[in-house]
């Protein structure tokens, strides 16, 4: 009996430790990014790091200005959001409110499959379809552009947007809709005037999380945006994002060198951006529920 008590005590301790492990891991991630990343700022000023216009990590002397990378990320993200938000929200409305039962399940599974396709596969597909099309349609020297990246990233953001917005729409109380129907509104009027406003905060959160997904996406952007770390000139030019910079250069960076630290410093920025987006989105969702 006593032996069993001790066994239960150990298992319950394991449960409690595992339970708070997530907090520990997030802290650990931040700590290790910081540990390597801050070493850059022994030699480099933070303002110069963030607002510097030149990313020449292997010149002598090197220059670690990530402004072009930040702007590259912003440009690609903006493009992706402009595509993904209208389509994503529209699809969420259709799936949640309009599609009949059987079709709804099929569409939802389709969205899940889209979410499941590995980013490197989407990047590969983008390289053999969108990139050559881009070159022909816009008559530009290379199809590896911010816009190409935006299109593929839009499809990576859509599953997030659709599923979270769909949840929000679905959880609008039935009574709201019935009230509108009772006043003689059509189904569309009800969706547009009642359901959508009622679900607005959930939809906003969905859009934010979709954008968070885009900001953090790595492989597809690296394969499609041309990787040019100069100040972006527009949607139809090659750019370089924060994530792609880390992925592309870490292999060559010497461990313990300034380049290595600079890539970790970029990691800190990415971590903080996505941290802020996720926390805010969560607050937006929960503010509504209370």
């Amino acid at each position: 009996m006593n032996f069993r008590r001790i066994k239960e005590f150990f298992v319950e301790s394991a449960i409690k430790i595992s339970g708070i492990a997530s907090i520990f891991i997030v802290a650990l991630i931040f700590f290790f990014l910081l540990k390597e990343g801050v070493l850059l700022f022994k030699t480099e000023k933070i303002t110069h790091f963030i607002f510097g216009k030149n990313w020449y990590p292997i010149s002598d002397p090197p220059d670690f200005g990530i402004l072009p990378l930040i702007l590259g990320t912003l440009l690609v993200t903006l493009g992706a959001a402009l595509i993904a938000v209208p389509f994503g929200v529209a699809a969420a409305i259709y799936i949640s409110e309009v599609a009949p039962g059987k079709l709804k399940e099929v569409l939802k599974s389709g969205i899940e499959l889209l979410a499941a396709i590995p980013s490197v596969v989407l990047g590969f597909i983008g390289m053999i379809t969108i990139v050559p099309w881009m070159k022909i349609i816009f008559k530009i020297p290379t199809g590896l552009t911010a816009f190409s990246g935006s299109i593929v990233l839009a499809f990576m953001a859509m599953p997030t947007i659709v599923s979270i917005a769909e949840d929000a729409l679905h959880s609008v109380p039935k009574a709201y809709k019935e009230g509108a129907y009772a006043l003689g509104a059509t189904k569309w009027q009800t969706i547009y005037r009642v359901v959508l406003p009622a679900a607005s905060s959930g939809v906003v959160a969905a859009v934010m999380l979709g954008i968070g997904r885009v900001v953090g996406e790595t492989m597809a952007v690296m394969m499609l945006t041309g990787n040019s770390p100069s100040m972006p000139r527009g949607m139809l030019y090659p750019v370089r994002t924060l994530t792609a910079t880390i992925a592309a250069e870490m292999g060559e960076a010497v461990q313990g060198g300034d380049h290595y630290y600079a890539l970790f410093a970029i990691g800190i920025i990415l971590f903080l951006i996505t941290f802020a987006i996720n926390i805010t989105a969560d607050l937006v969702i929960h503010r509504k529920r209370q």
Binding site: L270, F275, N278, I279
Partner: peptide
């Protein structure tokens, strides 16, 4: 929630 949102390349750095 944050762990789910951390960019995959940042996991790589970690």
């Amino acid at each position: 929630i944050n762990l789910a949102g951390v960019p995959s390349v940042v996991f790589g750095l970690f």
